[in-house]
């Protein structure tokens, strides 16, 4: 178990650079600090590096240079076990990535059982409570292929929460959904934000950003250009490129 961290800075990224093997410079010296219980939304045009940035925060992408500290633990320190660190950081994907060979309940229970070594009874009670929270207690015996997109994404959120993470990362969680299902997923995310979860959300839902975010980040071509409170971000865009971006999406 990672030692209990009481500080306020949950995610600290310092001068993060990322080059892909094909030479693409995906992140250009990105620095950001995300505080406890903060909801940070990252927006930007496609290919701006926002998903790459999110994926460096649980090391699905390793950085080429720079430092990331999660929950007080330096990610690239020798003594850091990345698997332990990932238990602290839940992730929700654009494509859900549910395990298709397992029922909804098994999807949620697998990692806590195999990774956290909690008792089956405790894990199952927790899983059922989480599925109730996302409104899917009636579907626990179903397989993912029997669910709608919105339901799948809510299971994916419950699955990530089952590890009792301190941070949740959302990588375009509503982009693969039919429009009528976006709301149900955003509602779950809002209630999570109200519970005080630290969240980083890459999304195109500007309404969600304005309503829920404590801060909004704007990225373009691998650079972090704007890091502002939503009212300033949307009403008083401090960067001409953000202004142009907002005029295109709003």
């Amino acid at each position: 178990m990672i030692k209990e961290y009481q500080g306020n800075d949950m995610i600290v990224a310092e001068n993060v650079d990322k080059y892909y093997p094909n030479g693409c410079h995906a992140l250009k010296t990105v620095s950001a600090t995300i505080h406890r219980a903060e909801v940070v939304v990252v927006v930007g045009p496609s290919g701006s590096g926002k998903s790459t940035f999110l994926r460096t925060l649980n090391q699905l992408e390793t950085v080429s240079s720079g430092n990331i500290t999660i929950d007080g633990t330096p990610m690239y320190a020798k003594e850091t076990d990345i698997n332990q660190l990932r238990e602290e950081v839940g992730m929700v994907f654009q494509g859900f990535n549910l395990f298709p060979h397992m029922s909804v309940l098994e999807n949620v229970m697998l990692a806590p059982l195999k990774v956290s070594k909690r008792t089956k009874r405790e894990v199952e009670d927790h899983a059922r409570a989480l599925l109730k929270k996302v409104g899917l207690e009636s579907r626990i015996e179903n397989f993912p292929s029997q669910l709608s997109g919105g339901q799948m994404q809510r299971v994916a959120i419950a699955r990530a929460l089952a590890m009792k993470p301190n941070i949740m990362l959302f990588d375009e969680p509503t982009s693969a959904l039919d429009p009528e299902m976006v709301g149900e997923v955003l509602d779950v995310m809002k209630s999570l934000a109200n519970d005080g979860m630290t969240m980083v959300v890459v999304t195109h839902e500007m309404g969600f950003a304005r309503e829920v975010a404590d801060r909004v980040l704007f990225m373009e071509e691998g650079e972090l250009l704007v890091n502002e409170k939503p009212d300033v971000f949307f009403d008083n865009p401090p960067h001409p490129r953000l202004e142009k971006f907002l005029s295109q999406v709003l």
Binding site: R86, E87, V89, M91, K114, V115
Partner: peptide, 27 residues
């Protein structure tokens, strides 16, 4: 098997072997 399956498993804290045994190989 889509790469997202391995990513989802790893993001939940499973190591490579666990992800292979529980997620990738059964599929």
């Amino acid at each position: 098997i889509p790469a997202g399956q391995m990513e989802a498993a790893r993001s939940l804290g499973m190591n490579y072997v666990q992800a292979m045994v529980y997620i990738i190989l059964p599929q």
